[in-house]
């Protein structure tokens, strides 16, 4: 068994084989092992957060991650930024006929590692196989559930609040762009793909934590424009405070991308009260994933929408970009 065949998704013997010999080798939670139609879950807390997402990234493997790690991190992060602790995860695979089993195994290994590190259990799953050329190798869908500790709703945000990012911006977008080999650039850039539950849960009990979001597709700018629209408040961002890695800055300049609009897969935008900003920054910076956390802006009532205060002291509007700079980034 070297390659995935149509029969692997038929629900018959081949499927059974694939699940028992491969999937269960890496995914072995007690909830999953009975292979029943549904998993029974236990919660200590009746308040549950749930999220779902599909992953179609191209290429499937990139420096700093792969589609499996991305799928786990994406689901975990969506739960964590909602003020909840991620607990359980479902995984659905759509695999193209002819996909190398070895690659599937690599993805599963990375799912195992990432989910264990993030403390989430994979409790249910599904596998479908489609004919050659009907999908691009492998797509993954995940659903995650978590227990709510502190509900973070956008209405919490008010004038004077601080806008914090947990680290450098645009790493994932740049990494994937380069990994596609479409540009004549001889460099390798690491994605920031990481599960943020360990970084963010310690913030939950800080008074003044108001709202969080993981800025994936569309980047931080898109998240902020959404916040400004939904709250009818203004946001002022300071260009010289935005953390960007040197390699990301160099390459995005070259390609004409703006890191503010590039995808991140291991970062959060954290909005806090003015008073709590320092405590939150300090806590973030204690964690290896939050070393470069920075306060990049403020909520204001002086104007609506998002405005960037530039390095030379000028001002310009930050708007949502209509053109998807890089499709299939996650």
């Amino acid at each position: 068994m070297k390659k995935i065949e149509i029969g692997h998704g038929s629900g018959g013997r081949l499927t059974r084989d694939l699940i028992e010999k491969l999937f269960l080798k890496y995914l072995d939670s007690n909830e999953l092992k009975p292979l029943e139609d549904a998993a029974y879950l236990r919660f200590e807390n009746p308040n549950i957060a749930i999220t779902t997402d599909s992953y179609v990234v191209r290429p499937l493997f990139f420096p700093g991650g792969d589609i499996g790690k991305l799928a786990v991190c994406g689901a975990v992060n969506d739960i964590a930024v909602s003020g909840a602790i991620p607990k359980y995860l479902s995984l659905s695979f759509i695999i193209e006929e002819g996909f190398l089993i070895k690659h599937l195994e690599d993805v599963l290994k990375s799912i195992k590692m990432t989910s264990e590190a993030a403390g989430v259990k994979i409790v249910t799953g599904d596998t479908k196989v489609v004919e050659r050329n009907k999908c691009d190798g492998l797509y993954i869908n995940t659903t995650a559930v978590g227990e709510i500790v502190t509900p973070l709703v956008i209405e919490n945000i008010s004038d004077g609040d601080a806008v914090i990012v947990t680290g450098t911006l645009g790493d994932h977008g740049t990494a994937v762009a380069i990994a596609r080999n479409e540009f004549d650039i001889d460099a390798s850039v690491e994605s920031d793909c990481a599960a943020l539950s360990g970084l963010l849960t310690p913030l939950f009990d800080i008074d003044g934590l108001k709202w969080m979001r993981d800025p994936t597709r569309g980047g931080v700018a898109t998240v902020l424009v959404e916040v400004a629209e939904k709250t009818s408040l203004g946001i002022e961002i300071y260009e010289d405070k935005i953390p960007v890695r040197d390699d990301v800055r160099f390459i995005s300049d070259m390609l004409g991308y703006d890191p503010l609009y590039l995808a991140n897969e291991g970062k959060a935008v954290v909005i806090t009260s003015h008073e709590a900003a320092d405590e939150i920054l300090n806590k973030l910076r204690l964690h290896s994933l939050g070393k470069n956390a920075a306060l990049i802006g403020r909520i204001t009532t002086k104007h609506k929408g998002v405005r960037l205060r530039t390095k030379i002291g000028g001002e310009r509007v930050l708007d949502m970009l209509e053109d998807d700079m890089l499709p299939r980034i996650c």
Partner: peptide
């Protein structure tokens, strides 16, 4: 000029 917000200055 546009991206540095120079006109506003």
């Amino acid at each position: 000029i546009a991206f540095s917000g120079m006109r506003s200055l």
